[in-house]
């Protein structure tokens, strides 16, 4: 039985609270949605509901970090990376303060709430800030590792989590998680799919189809978007003939852009970016939305075949 990445985040945060009494948590009236409620229940004296006031929440966290505490800030990705963007940029990242951001309800998989709530730009917004690190976990087990990693690092880190219940990916979870180092889930010699978050199981499905047709396909889980693992990207760039990236995010500024920044100026594989094509989302069920916006295994297969 699976669980949502937000629940995995909430449970891990509560465990971290036990291990490290410096950790405090802040939420903006969404503790019951982001699942920071687990921490709230265990450590009410170290949990601060700031009300529906995201900008104030982020600056308060900056103040808490100034006096030596380790704040975890959570809300929906749009209201964190969006509404409180400049607070994160100037009060936290500019000073390289030790504040952690775990924003949930990212991407189209928010579902029925629609375009006003589906953040398709938060990776770009967070990635562009100097000092910020960005991790996009793919399954519940990796989320625990990502949240622990964020707590252990010094300085600002963004962990992107989502709303829906997902299954663990056994092929991924048996491999070690290393910050800044992509996890090669399976190797391949003709093509490579570089994916993050909820696109990882879809990438595995695409690889299976391609393998059945005799196209040896690597699947790379790029859990750390920043700092990006240039070494692995360049290795596959010279090894395979076609690469695609897949993300539940705009094609502008996210994982695909980060990979393209590494590839710029290098000869090698053809590369194509799969993501949301510069569009806002809309209401619908997550799976239907993935199909509507082309975040599917079929699309990845098609792109790779086009390039080979």
């Amino acid at each position: 039985m699976g669980k949502s990445l937000r629940v995995a985040f909430g449970e891990t945060l509560a465990k971290l609270g036990e291990e490290n009494e410096n950790i405090v948590a802040l939420d903006a009236d969404l503790a019951n949605a982001t699942q920071s409620k687990y921490f709230k229940e265990k450590f009410p004296e170290r949990f601060f509901d700031m009300g529906i006031a995201e900008a104030n929440m982020v600056d308060t966290a900056a103040g808490l970090a100034h006096v030596g505490l380790t704040p975890f800030v959570s809300t929906f990705a749009l209201f964190g990376a969006g509404r409180a963007y400049e607070e994160i940029r100037n009060s936290v990242a500019y000073e390289n303060l030790n504040v952690k951001f775990a924003f949930s309800h990212s991407g189209l998989s928010v579902g029925e709430d629609g375009g006003s709530h589906q953040s398709v730009e938060d990776i770009a917004l967070m990635r562009v800030m100097p000092n910020m690190r960005v991790i996009v976990p793919a399954d519940p087990k990796e989320t625990e590792k990502a949240v622990r990693c964020a707590a252990a690092l010094d300085g600002p880190v963004y962990v992107r989590v989502g709303r829906p219940v997902v299954e663990d990916i056994p092929e991924l979870d048996e491999k070690p998680f290393e910050f800044g180092k992509a996890t090669v889930i399976k190797d391949g010699t003709d093509a490579a799919i570089i994916a993050c978050g909820l696109m990882v199981p879809i990438a595995l499905e695409a690889a299976k189809t391609l393998e059945a047709e005799g196209i040896s396909t690597a699947v790379i889980n790029m859990h750390t978007i920043k700092p990006i693992d240039a070494e692995t990207i360049l290795k596959y760039n010279s090894k395979v003939k076609a690469m695609v990236s897949m993300e539940e995010h705009s094609v502008i500024g996210g994982l695909g852009s980060a990979v393209a920044e590494v590839l710029a100026g290098n000869a090698g594989a053809k590369f194509s970016i799969i993501g949301i094509n510069d569009l806002f989302g809309q209401s619908g069920k997550p799976d239907n939305l993935f199909a509507e916006y082309g975040l599917t295994a079929e699309h990845a297969v098609e792109e790779i075949k086009k390039m080979l």
Binding site: D113, G114, S116, G284, E292
Partner: peptide, 13 residues
């Protein structure tokens, strides 16, 4: 309401 392609979005549009 709230279905794919509906003009009735989860939040006013």
């Amino acid at each position: 309401l709230r279905q794919l392609h509906s003009h009735l979005q989860g939040h006013p549009d």
